[in-house]
Each structure stands twice: as C-alpha cells, then as structure tokens.
Nucleic acid binder design. Structure first.
Lengths: 93, 93
DNA sequence: AATCTATTTAGAAAAATTTCTAAATAGTTT
DNA sequence: AAACTATTTAGAAATTTTTCTAAATAGATT
C-alpha cells in the first residue's frame, strides 16, 4: 500500500461517498452508480481508483461485480495519523 | 473545515512531508523549502493549500513566516475514519 | 447462437493541479 | 530612504485527473 495512492483515492468526494455507502453492505457497481449523477463508466473509473488503493475489493457473482470495504487499509491510515498525536516533544520554539 | 479540502491537501506527498516535518517544531517557509527540490514559490503554494485546509497555521516574526501544525483538524479526520470502525451491522450479504 | 444485462476499457475533451519564472509585497537593516 | 531578506502573488506551461461517448468484454437468458 502507498499512502500517495490511498490519500489520492480519498481526496475525491464521490469516492469518499462510495466508501461510506459500503460501510454496511457490499454493493454492485450498478447499485453504486445509481446513487450518483454520472455515467457507469465514470463510476467504474472511481471504483478502479479505490481498488488500486486497496480501499475496496471486488467479488464477482453472475454478471455482477460486487464491491466491499477492505478495512485493513483503514487501520494503516489510522497509524499514519497516529504519528501526529501525543509525541509533541519540543512543545514550542 | 471541509473534508474535501482536507483530503485534497493530504493527497500530495510534499504536503504530507511538510506535515511530518512540523510535528515537533514550527518552521519558517524558507526552512521548510530548503528540504525540497522546488522553488520557494512552489513551497508557498503548498503551504497555502495546507493553510486553507486548516492543517497548519502561520505566525509572523520579523520578516519570517512560521508554520505549525493545527492538531485539532487531525482529530476531526480521525473521527471521519472512525466511521469505518466497528459498526459492521450487516456483516455479510 | 443470438440477445440481453452489467461492467470495463479506450480515447478524447474539459477541468484542476502542480510547477516554474518574474514581479510584487512587506518587514529589516544599514 | 536605499538596499536587503523572506515570502507571496500572477501568469503561463506542463501534467494529472475527471468525465464523457462509444466500443469491447463477459456472463446469463431465450
């Protein structure tokens, strides 16, 4: 996982919305797309960005592609943020 | 604070690097710039993005502009991420 | 096998971001 | 006040991202 890829993926509002939608259930590409005012091709692009960033993974069933959260990467991001907590050695200069 | 702005700001490697540099000490724009292979103007642009995202704030002293972390926004981002932890109601579908 | 349904890929246009050089600003020192 | 130092702003070029339409793929159904 690269933080560059992960944060880039998180930097788009539609992609963050998709992640929120996937919190409680896996959804097909089409189902995800129907929540947005964009073409299926565009949604597919956003899903590919999330996938490359390992924020989601897909499983295929019939001719549907289901997406779900990959929570493990969230843990790693939390660790990155943890760097900014607490260890304020030289409080002020 | 807008998550759009915050995550956009975090999506650039130089800007993440700047945030890491600011963990323990405030630094002037020039000092920050000397760690990168880019012009002062470019560094100034990145600092302005971080500032707009409320990830840093500046204080002026003499003709130096010092930057330091605004840790409160980090807390809010952590809260955003917390949405993805634990509350897995419908485990699988 | 032909058609239909769901999704992705390709290629192009539009929009946003990143970077630079040159000039402007603002405060400091001589 | 003139010159200097630190930083920002303006404007332009290069790059990347986002979006679309049209075509391609792949599996399912008739």
């Amino acid at each position: 996982m690269s933080f560059a890829e992960t944060f880039k993926a998180l930097s788009d509002p539609a992609r963050r919305e998709i992640l929120l939608m996937l919190r409680n259930k896996k959804m097909s590409a089409g189902e995800i797309g129907s929540h947005f005012d964009m073409t299926g091709a565009t949604v597919s692009y956003h899903l590919s960005v999330l996938k490359k960033a390992d924020l989601v993974y897909e499983t295929k069933q019939k001719n549907f592609v289901y997406y779900e959260l990959n929570t493990s990467v969230f843990e790693e991001i939390m660790l990155w943020f943890a760097q900014f907590k607490g260890e304020n050695s030289d409080e002020n200069q």
